[in-house]
Design a protein around this nucleic acid. Structure first.
Length: 802
DNA sequence: GATCCTTACCAGGCC
DNA sequence: GGTAAGGATC
């Protein structure tokens, strides 16, 4: 054991409440030998190679609990890094349960949250203020766009996406402008121009008192390197560092961990040996088969070379899976085994084979979505709760077809991530007001609200204001207050002064030494929205969408109130930080009683009784873009693997033969990964071969392709392919036209009674068995002659009474 | 400077 | 199918 115990206090466990805390033995109870080893091992470095579903969260929480309970560490000496805020909250809760009390002072958070916390405390050391803004990728893009325009870099062929991508990559590798410029090739005008853009971007961020996402990590590393006494503060504080999802860390994050686990410098000066001499203990958990973030700089070498980086590290392998059935695991194993240069690892379970994987090929994305909806209805009838069912897809654009069908089928669902609430223009506007109040240096935020709502402050005025601020070396706010000096028209000047006064008034509310403390965020936002007339202006337009936008702003107001309820001491800065760092999964509500829809990336770390993996097609999974990337197809395979291993009991793989994109219909091909699953594991309700040979009602292009095995390369998917598909009679499912009318219908108060006959544009004629629900949510249970039983939302289903 | 309209380009995953 | 950019017009 390292000598950390000498420097850390022994604490007596405090027993509080109900069932009481777990004893040492209880902490190990129910764990397998490897898991136990991972909990009790004490040394400077530990790598837990944890296959999917092998209970790593359990191991991590028990390990933390045992450190605290054994008196080896105070809660405040623990830093645990998770991938999402939700995972952090869960871990905190579970550790609390194990200890029988809330462990105060533990840092359990994401890399980004932890770094923001450090940066807010230390910002003043290096030219920022604690109220810095965090720029999300949209903000970064907006900034780069302006810079490219200003420098006329578009003539060099620079695009916003290219530049932001390259800057992000450089930052993740801890390359700042100066170090990049040092090795740049200035005889290449392109490279020289890029340096200029990069420099302008970095300066703009600094001037705006802002960090972009990548800065949060890299600037913390720079801070530690530039100010050893600051680094030492955190090196002394955190004695045990644990990092989850280590396979997805990038170089900057790796460097951060290295900085934090270094022995404090003053120890070295005092001649205390480095190894085991005061560096924090490091535990990392990961699975290289689940590395799916190379695109944002994750470096798989961090985990592969862990033992070399941290000599003497112990490695523990967790291979027993406690989540899925053997059929699901066998499929996963055989898929991932197609990736070379990986350490062979086979998941196994003791729970038995379980049901077969179900496969389905639809004629279109809508057909596929209908299959998903129908199967979910069956699962539900079989007693499965909606919130135990998830639908995964590779790209966010796939949600449209699913949503259309789900709404029609009256299926309660929730889309995680996607076009997020906080990415909406009106929400960004409202947030920009708050940002402008918190950080008066933030030009990007101010620019956003300067003429929103319309105040007659156009681009020309904006430029004048900006150059005045620069010339006089004052903040934008000050420049606005001195607007009369600009010699503009009385109307514009008045508008600027009014906005400045409003922002000043709001700033008053959040001044820390204000009598009664900072006003709640909701009060600040209400003032801003009220006085600026923003919401009023939205309600005044003829555009019907603006009404929805106004409601969204009201919703944001509700969010701030909720925030104030949950965080009575929460400041405006806390709110802005929280909003900046929410991840897609963070709005997952386990108690919502709805089906969850999300991308495969978002699905990592989650598990469901039943999983629908949709769009298993070439160009989608693997995604078209991945073909040209080194390691792309292998990463896509890992993504598929991650999706499969989320399923506990039931797994459905589906694809479509045609898919709408850009408003056009394109032909789709089955994914190469489907063949990597042994045929006997899949029960095809409708295989790709069957879909081609019997597509009686679909676009002519496909009907022309009639005949078994006529598509997808020979007989690969034909009935004679050895997939074991019985020839059987054509299913009725294939007999109706599969067109789905995209338009929103409104049947008004269409009254339906059991016994009524109706006609549906897709399903044909049927008889109403039952009507449930109230008002707009009335649902008709219909027995269709051809399509079987369906549930339909009466208000919007494409039906008529006959 | 605002508004309306047409056109061009477009969506890969995310803290 | 959706949006951002650019042009025409008031």
């Amino acid at each position: 054991m390292s000598d950390t115990t000498e420097t850390t206090p022994r604490i007596t466990p405090i027993v509080v409440g109900g069932t009481g805390p777990a004893t040492d033995d209880e902490l190990l109870e129910g764990l397998n030998p490897e898991q136990r080893e991972a909990v009790v091992y004490r040394g400077s470095a530990l790598l837990i190679v944890a296959g999917a579903g092998s209970g790593k969260t359990r191991v991590l929480t028990h390990r933390i609990a045992s450190l605290i309970k054994g008196g080896e560490a105070w809660p405040s000496q623990i830093l645990a890094i998770t991938f999402t805020n939700k995972a952090a909250a869960e871990m905190r809760e579970r550790v609390g349960q194990l200890l029988g009390q809330v462990a105060e002072g533990m840092w359990i958070s994401t890399f980004h949250s932890a770094c923001v916390r450090i940066l807010r405390r230390e910002a003043e050391n290096f030219g920022f203020t604690k109220s810095f803004t965090i720029y999300d990728s949209q903000d970064s893009r907006a900034l780069v766009k302006r810079i490219i325009k200003d420098l006329q870099a578009d003539t060099f062929g620079f695009t916003v996406a290219q530049v932001t991508g390259k800057i992000s990559k450089l930052k993740n590798e801890l390359t700042d402008v100066e170090s990049y410029a040092r090795q740049a090739n200035f005889s290449d005008p392109n490279d020289a121009m890029f340096v200029e853009i990069f420099r302008a971007y970095s300066r703009a961020l600094r001037d705006a008192n802002a960090f972009d996402f990548d800065d949060l990590i890299s600037q913390t590393v720079y801070l530690f390197r530039a100010f050893p006494q600051v680094a030492e503060k955190y090196q002394r504080r955190f004695r045990h560092i644990l990092v989850d999802e280590y396979q997805d860390t990038n170089h900057a994050q790796y460097a951060l961990i290295r900085e934090l686990t270094k022995p404090p410098e003053s120890n070295e000066l005092a001649g205390i040996p480095a190894f085991g001499g005061g560096g924090a203990s490091l535990t990392v958990v990961g699975d290289s088969d689940q590395s799916i973030y190379a695109f944002r700089g994750a470096d798989i070498r961090n985990i592969v070379e862990f033992e070399r980086d941290f000599p003497g590290a112990r490695v523990v392998l967790l291979e027993q899976n406690y989540r899925s059935t053997q059929n699901i695991l066998s499929a996963a194993n055989s898929v991932i085994s197609n990736n070379f240069d990986r350490k062979d690892k086979k998941l196994w379970t003791a729970v038995g084979d379980g049901e077969k994987i179900v496969g389905f090929t639809g004629y279109s994305g809508h057909d596929e979505a209908q299959f998903v909806a129908d199967e979910i209805a069956k699962l539900r009838e079989g007693g499965m709760a909606y919130n135990q069912i998830a639908v995964f897809y590779r790209t966010n654009s796939q949600t449209r077809a699913l949503e259309e069908i789900f709404i029609r089928s009256a299926l309660p669902y929730r889309v995680l991530g996607g076009t997020k609430f906080y990415e909406r223009a009106e929400i960004k506007d409202a947030m920009a007001y708050l940002t402008s109040v918190a950080n008066p240096f933030d030009g990007l935020a101010l620019r956003r609200i300067l003429n929103t709502p319309k105040r007659g402050i156009g681009p020309a005025t904006e430029t004048q204001l900006a150059s005045f601020a620069e010339r006089e070396n004052v903040s934008y706010r000050e420049a606005m207050r001195r607007a009369p000096e600009l010699g503009l028209g009385p109307k514009v000047t008045g508008a600027i002064l009014q906005l400045a006064a409003l922002l000043d008034e709001a700033t008053e509310l959040v001044t820390p030494d204000r009598p009664g403390g900072e006003a709640p965020v909701s009060e600040v936002l209400a003032l801003l929205m009220e006085q600026s007339g923003y919401v009023k202006s939205l309600r005044a337009t003829r555009d019907p969408q603006d009404e929805a936008r106004a409601e969204n702003v009201e919703e944001l107001l509700a969010v701030t109130k909720e925030f104030n309820r949950n965080n009575p001491d929460g400041t405006l800065l806390d709110f802005l930080t929280e909003v900046s760092l929410v991840a897609a999964v963070d709005d997952l509500d386990d108690s919502s009683g709805t089906v969850s829809l999300m991308t495969l990336h978002t699905a990592k770390g989650l598990e469901y009784e039943a999983v629908f993996l949709t769009g298993v097609e070439e160009d989608l999974l693997p995604h078209r873009m991945s073909a040209s990337e080194p390691g792309g197809p292998a990463e896509e395979r890992r993504l598929f693997y991650v999706g499969i291993t989320r399923a506990k009991k039931r797994l459905f793989l589906s694809l479509a033969m045609t898919r709408a994109q850009f408003g056009e219909t394109a032909v789709a091909m089955p994914s190469r990964y489907l063949q990597e699953i042994p045929a006997e594991l899949i029960d095809w309700i409708q295989s790709p071969g069957m879909a081609t040979s019997r597509g009686g009602s679909e676009p002519r292009a496909l009907n022309a392709n009639r005949g078994r095995g006529s598509y997808g390369g020979g007989s690969r998917w034909g009935n004679d392919s050895g997939l074991g598909i019985p020839p059987g009679p054509p299913r009725p499912k294939t007999e109706w036209a599969n067109r789905v009318t995209g338009q929103v219908r409104d049947n008004g108060d269409l009254e339906l009674q059991p016994g009524d006959r109706i006609r549906h544009t897709d399903f044909g004629e049927g008889r109403v068995n039952q009507v449930t629900g109230e008002g707009a949510k009335r649902v008709a249970h219909v027995q269709f002659e051809a399509a079987g039983p369906k549930k339909l939302l009466i208000k919007i289903a494409p039906i008529e009474k006959i």
